[in-house]
Amino acid sequence: MLPARDPDRRGDGLHLVFMASPPAVRDSLAQMLAAQPLRDLSPDGRGTAELVLAEVLNNIAEHSYPVAPGPVSVTLTPVDGGTQCLVVDQGVPMPGGHLPEGHLPSADTALEDLPEGGFGWHLIYSLTQDMAYVRIHGSNRLSFLLPRDS
């Protein structure tokens, strides 16, 4: 029997559209990891891809759509250096219209002051290359490369 055909699949790339809420992000990550181009990465590469995409998509769920979940699209394209990712949402723009700096919060503090958040962008920047953000026609477009050996 032939496998079910994904109508959104283009060549070896993957294009998915879903509502940005934490449970939907979780389900969509599972779907992305089970399909090309992420399916054939090394276990480490798949772990990194899942982490980066989870951080990006949960940021969108939390900050782009603070009131109610809205749509997000993810396009994954295999390229020479790894996997090129494009993530588009129609939520509120990034604060100041640019990418956050992603400074790592200090761990060198008293117990009660230890950071419980602010790690996301640092993780994203640490594991990707060529991060770019544009706000265009009411959309946030984030593009980046997941390098082959990170």
Partner: peptide, 17 residues
Amino acid sequence: VQFLDSSGLGAIVAVKK
């Protein structure tokens, strides 16, 4: 646990606190 994101990490730090 095969997967932990920054929210999960924050929760573990919160438990320590």
